[in-house]
Design a protein around this nucleic acid. Structure first.
Lengths: 225, 225
DNA sequence: ATTAAAAAATGATACATATCACACAATATG
DNA sequence: CATATTGTGTGATATGTATCATTTTTTAAT
């Protein structure tokens, strides 16, 4: 399902788009379509040519590499941009994006995005802020991925879903055991085992993908070394 | 050793600074000092308050976390910016920087840097390009750090030094065994062992820090899975 | 030079985690 | 509904790498 949109009246603008004047917003609306993706849908694929900046209005998306040793690089909840780095200068997507929950995504022509950067200082400024934050986040992730053991990494991931994505301690995991493994760099078997152990210790309660976090403090302790 | 500089005549400007007009370059010169760092000197330290954007004119720098499980996040050769993400919005350095070779570094007031972004679209544009590239690089690193084994990661690191930093296959390693371990996420013992084995297989020749790469193809093969 | 201190090499062992194998459950497909 | 397909749990085993212990080499200090 795709629909044209009116960016002037949009209430989930990015910090950058908030800096655009009404004329620019109209131009944006003409160079932008909103597309709905169902949970599980592929949004864009590693290796393909990219001509749009994608703005995740609402929903949850994973950015990941393909292949047998597929790796989940980032899971992000809207609103926010997906993969500016990939689209901006180079034109090939360096990773894939898949919807983990139903999503509404705006596809913005790279050209108009670039023209805003060149026309509007404040817009550019906000994009820079966004990129800086996202790079710092990546550094964090890079560090935590390698200095925690599986218990720590999995605990961290569960807290991430609970606190950052679903904002509740009782939710359905958006990933299979195998995908969880790809997210925290381990195998599906190890994920199963650790989940089972956390369950038996009454730190969590897990049944299939249904997760209830009983002792968030215990997870917190496991996850920070 | 610190000296004022004339940015108008500087010949190792960043792509961004190339977009500045002569008036802006004069302003830059007044808000900027160049400082020389000897090999081993600390440039800035994790946790400290940062008020400058740092531009590495020449030399080699490592960005790293502190503490017993210190981790080297990135090794970079000038010219190029160091740690814009840290300095830009937030004001606390998220990691430390140390010179691996003698360096000349410009310390630029964050304020003038920001004002250029707001005054000069092309400057902002180039900074965005820079940030995008650096984020993509980080993604790469994140992936390769976790899907290669120690042989692969070390081979990759050796090729990195040879190809990207020193541009020769015969050079002195800028890192101790322990630091190499921090760079590729392993222990000093494992680094020793793998270096010894690569040496015994005549893929490299290592004596102390003196490294000669005999079979770069063999390293290449080991490093890409 | 002589000694002290730090860095590196190397062997033995321990341990976390991957891999393999299979049973079982859940979900899709005709 | 039966059957295939995919996902999951769990035990047994293998393996890479960390850790510990000791020796050797290199570097720095007196």
């Amino acid at each position: 399902m795709t629909s044209n949109i009116n960016c002037n009246t949009c209430i989930i603008k990015s910090s950058a788009a908030k800096e655009l004047n009404s004329e620019q917003l109209s131009a944006l609306g003409k160079n932008c379509v909103q597309i709905f993706f169902k949970k599980g849908d592929v949004i864009f694929k590693e290796g393909t040519f990219s001509v749009n900046i994608t703005y995740l209005r609402e929903g949850v998306v994973k950015l990941h590499t393909e292949g047998k040793s597929s790796q989940i690089l980032k899971i992000t909840k809207g609103p926010g941009y997906l993969g500016i780095p990939t689209t901006f200068e180079e034109k090939i997507n360096h990773y894939s994006a898949t919807a983990l929950e139903d999503c509404n995504i705006c596809f913005i022509h790279t050209n108009i995005f670039k023209s805003f950067i060149e026309e509007n200082k404040k817009f550019a400024y906000e994009i820079i802020v966004e990129l800086c934050n996202s790079e710092l986040e990546l550094f964090q992730k890079c560090v935590s991925r390698t200095k925690n053991n599986i218990y720590g990494r999995l605990s961290h991931a569960l807290l991430f879903f609970s606190e950052k994505i679903y904002k509740t301690d009782n939710f359905n995991l958006p990933l299979s055991r195998e995908e969880l493994g790809n997210f925290i760099n381990t195998t599906r078997e190890s994920v199963s085992r650790v989940l089972a152990e956390l369950d038996s210790k009454k730190i969590i309660q897990i049944k299939g993908r249904q997760l209830k976090i009983l002792k968030p403090e215990a997870l917190k302790e496991l996850s920070d070394v």
